[in-house]
Design a protein around this nucleic acid. Structure first.
Length: 493
RNA sequence: GGCGGCGUGGCCGAGGGGCUUAGGCACAGGUCUGCAAAACCUGGUACACCGGUUCGAGUCCGGUCGCCGCCUCCA
């Protein structure tokens, strides 16, 4: 292969050659979902983005440990001081145990990801399962002098940290700007400095999720779990940390600060951030009410909260995956039904060719050359996982495959083997696309075949009235009949 | 207000100083066909605006306009 993998590092704002700290091993941590609601398109984009990274690194021969957490505790609802844990709030409203809520949405998340053919991470740790480790890290930061106790809560001492280290290097922010901005906000009594963030938060009496410590009965702060779990499973320094662009500040910035304050080391070599999903050019978000969950998209589930959905049909999870891959992960991706319908047609065209490839007959020699396409494809993958270019190259190959099928070109047996291998590797293993799940039983398949065989006989008798009627009635059932030279094909529309 | 990013043909979406076109969808023409659909083949249109650098600029620099993100939980 001519080129080598380069990844865009958010920390340096440059593409850098990828060199793991301890080859052939690669440690990768990606911020997972907070499980207090159904997974939406934004979750899908992050998961698919890093699924490609995971798959491609494995393809390159690295031994990858991929850790992606489930946040089931610790995120605050509103203002840090008044807030209530998101999961606890939902639990109180629904009269359910917090664990019940978290488990339910974790399963829903994982199921949706499975349907999009997202590989499960090597480790999927729970924040609630790592409370002792989080307490330990708070103690370490306290012992190192970068935190202080105030009224039962423990806060990170940002002012002190910023004197020695560059807080803001990841997000390009300057602490002075942040201070200037926040001065006007009301001073919060417990904190020395408005931008100090909670490492441990004392729980108010209503708060149901709580753990006993010497500081107070409470719960861990927002950013702590990722620092703790990445360190535990990947070490104090590891290769890749990923997540959505919206997590860059303050979440990831604070993770760096915590790790440096606790361990004295920069935790991450390559920071990667996927861009966000927009709907009509606006960020998809809960507060704007313009989000769309994956179950609404895949299965036509109706929103519980009376939102109106910007679509009137469902899409196969594979089509959604393909749609996501058609944009580069660092560009915004604008959602619309029209865009998804276009992706769906392209996806089908690609998959047709994948099916076709196994039926092709080799000729004596090759009159088409796939080598440039193959080279371009891997160059694109090596260039910061440029999946849109990969897909464009695949369509170039599709064109050639169709020419061969139409006998307008030919390919030698050995070249055909190469192309088959290339297609299977890229389409299935690296892009993780697969044939659409067909949910029909064998019986239905056989019945349709039977009906169409009878129709074929009618056609032979030139009884076109019957043939057309059958085709029309099947069409009403959502079955599209396609006549071929000497038979028929059909598919669900 | 501070910081960052983006404006590409009807739509989506890559590229990023000249060399070979991104690609998909839509559209038009064609092949196939009892008709149709599907499939396949072929084809056109582009780089927000104004200056500058350069032999040469969507591509670099400056400005203008517009859009978006972060600065609060968020993938």
């Amino acid at each position: 292969m001519a080129s080598e993998l380069h990844v865009y590092n958010s920390l340096t704002r440059k593409k850098e050659k990828f060199e793991p700290l301890h080859p052939p091993f690669v440690g990768m941590y990606v911020c997972g979902p907070t499980v207090y609601g159904d997974p939406h398109l934004g979750h899908a984009r992050a998961a698919v983005t890093f699924d490609i990274v995971f798959r491609y690194l494995k393809h390159l021969g690295y031994k990858v440990r991929y850790v992606s957490n489930i946040t089931d505790v610790g995120h605050l609802e509103n203002d840090a001081d008044e807030g209530e844990d998101k999961i606890a709030k939902k639990a109180r409203l629904a009269q359910l145990e917090p664990m019940e809520i978290a488990n339910y949405y974790t399963r829903r998340y994982n199921e949706a990801m499975r349907r999009m053919n997202v590989l499960p991470p090597s480790i999927q740790p729970l924040a609630s399962g790592h409370i002792p480790e989080q307490i330990e890290m708070v103690e370490k930061i306290l012992a190192n002098g970068y935190a202080y106790i105030s009224n039962g809560s423990v806060y990170f001492d940002l002012e002190k940290y910023a004197k020695q280290y560059n807080y803001g290097k990841l997000s390009g922010k300057r602490l002075e700007d942040l201070i200037a901005e926040s001065r006007e906000l009301q001073g919060t009594s417990e904190k020395r400095h408005p931008f100090d963030f909670a490492l441990w938060k004392k729980a108010d009496p209503r708060h149901i999720m709580r753990w006993k410590t010497k500081w107070s009965e409470g719960f861990p702060g927002w950013h702590l779990e990722c620092s703790v779990m990445s360190t535990k499973y990947l070490g104090e320094q590891f290769d890749i940390h990923g997540g959505g662009l919206d997590l860059q500040f303050p979440h990831h910035e604070s993770e760096i600060a915590q790790s440096v304050a606790a361990n004295g080391k920069e935790p991450v070599k390559y920071w990667m951030h996927n861009n966000l999903v927009t709907i009509n050019g606006q960020k998809m978000s809960k507060s704007l009410g313009n989000f769309i969950t994956l179950y609404e998209l895949f299965d036509g589930e109706q929103p519980e909260d009376g939102r109106t959905l910007p679509l009137n049909r469902t899409f196969n999870p594979q089509v959604v995956r393909f749609f996501i891959l058609q944009a580069h992960y660092r560009s915004p991706l604008d959602f619309s039904q029209q865009a998804l319908e276009a992706a769906e047609k392209g996806y089908k065209r690609l998959m047709n060719a994948v099916r076709l490839i196994d039926k092709l007959e080799p000729g004596d020699k090759s009159t088409v050359d796939f080598s440039k396409i193959i080279e371009n494809t891997f160059d694109a993958l090596n260039d910061d996982f440029n999946t849109p270019v990969v897909i464009a190259q695949l369509f170039e190959a599709v064109k050639l495959l169709n020419l061969i099928h139409d006998k307008k070109a030919q390919i030698s047996a050995s070249d055909l083997e190469k192309v088959k291998d290339f297609f299977h590797t890229v389409v299935f293993d690296i892009l993780g696309l697969e044939f659409q799940e067909t949910e029909t039983s064998q019986i239905v398949n056989k019945l349709v075949d039977l009906i169409l065989t009878l129709r074929l006989e009618a056609k032979k008798r030139k009884d076109y009235e019957t043939a057309d009627k059958i085709r029309e009635e099947l069409s009403k059932l959502g079955i599209r009949v396609k006549d071929t030279r000497d038979g028929f094909e059909w598919e669900f529309v």
